[in-house]
């Protein structure tokens, strides 16, 4: 459904031209490659897969068959590159849903359970963590005094409070404006997603993001086979290629099936409240309407769908 909305943007003639052009290129080279299924080179992929990778269409422009082909190719590549079987599905946004998140900062104790659960769920390489838990000085909201690398015997530490920051899924996302190739966009459920196979890795979105919420794969993700979460989707937690940008996507592989994001599930204090902003009876709406909430850097006009509030 969402797919139709986007494909419609292109005039049919242009679309036909583009498709036939790509198909011709594809057929020509595929014929040249022949039926040989050479392994080893092409980054551990077969030549045919490497070839299809190169000419892969933008997610929003793929037909249903092309998408299926791509998904099975992703599964094949994971087997070849990481030696583990995964399932990769397509998870279009749900109708009538816009996701929002609220964190009760008086309940956050800085345990970082969310950080690690997120990393496991989303197949994050060892040097990327989507959630920054900032240790803040009481009586101040000065981010410059925040410490992300705190290490203590036990937390919370007296005189400190904890401010978890992740992608705010801005409703006016500067990163989406920045992208020169439309590899990142906001879906109808308000989640800003990335097509990892379309991103060219220019990192302009990282410069544009006011929340340090975007991360680059400086090298091929180091994922040990036994730690890969095999339950993946295209737009979310599948293993990423080298040289592309990724970010928190509110666990689309879970939340678009009605589940909670991994960080909410992991939070031992119940500080995280996730839900549908369009549902007036949802917990998130209760928080927005009954608590004194604030958003980070609201003055920038990014309209985050991520709130903070306090019990105290």
């Amino acid at each position: 459904m969402a797919r139709d909305k986007y494909t419609k943007k292109m005039p049919d003639a242009v679309d036909y031209y583009r498709r036939s052009f790509l198909k011709r290129l594809g057929v020509t080279t595929a014929a040249a490659v022949g039926a040989t299924y050479a392994h080893g080179a092409w980054g551990g992929k077969s030549l045919a897969d490497a070839f299809s990778d190169f000419f892969q269409q933008h997610y929003q422009r793929m037909t249903a068959e092309e998408l299926q082909e791509t998904l099975s190719r992703i599964e094949r590549k994971a087997q070849q590159q990481y030696g583990t079987g995964i399932t990769c599905t397509d998870t279009p946004p749900l109708e009538g849903v816009v996701f929002g998140y609220a964190i009760n900062i008086s309940k956050c104790k800085g345990y970082r359970d969310c950080v690690e659960a997120c990393a496991e769920e989303n197949n994050l390489p060892s040097d990327i963590r989507y959630i920054h838990v900032l240790e803040m000085d009481e009586g101040s909201m000065n981010l410059e005094l925040a410490d992300r690398y705190y290490e203590h015997e036990t937390v919370p530490v007296e005189g400190k409070y904890y401010l978890p920051v992740q992608c705010m899924q801005c409703d006016n996302p500067p990163c989406v404006k920045a992208c020169p190739v439309e590899a990142t966009w906001m879906d109808s459920d308000g989640i800003v997603v990335v097509d990892y196979d379309w991103c060219i890795g220019c990192r302009y979105c990282m410069a544009a993001c006011p929340y340090s919420a975007r991360f680059f794969n400086w090298t091929r993700p180091d994922l040990p086979a036994d730690r890969i979460n095999p339950d993946t989707n295209y737009i979310g937690n599948r293993p990423r290629p080298v040289g592309v940008v990724e970010k928190c996507h509110f666990c689309t592989q879970r939340t678009r099936k009605g589940r909670q994001p991994a960080c909410q599930e992991a939070c031992p204090t119940g500080a995280r409240i996730f839900g549908n902003l369009l549902d007036p009876n949802s917990e998130i709406r209760y928080v927005l309407e009954n608590k004194a909430v604030f958003r980070l850097k609201e003055d920038l006009g990014t309209e985050p769908k991520f709130w903070y509030f306090s019990d105290r």
């Binding site: 242009v14 031209y17 583009r18 052009f21 790509l22 190169f54 933008h58 422009r61 404006k177 920045a178 992208c179 020169p180 190739v181 439309e182 590899a183 379309w198 991103c199 060219i200 890795g201 220019c202 990192r203 302009y204 680059f216 794969n217 290629p241 080298v242 040289g243 592309v244 940008v245």
Partner: peptide
């Protein structure tokens, strides 16, 4: 850029060129 092999994504029509927004 991280993926010079995907530079063709910038070519209008064949790729997707985010002009004039980006």
């Amino acid at each position: 850029i991280g993926r010079p092999d995907r530079i063709w994504h910038m070519i209008p029509l064949i790729g997707r060129f985010n002009f004039p927004v980006s």
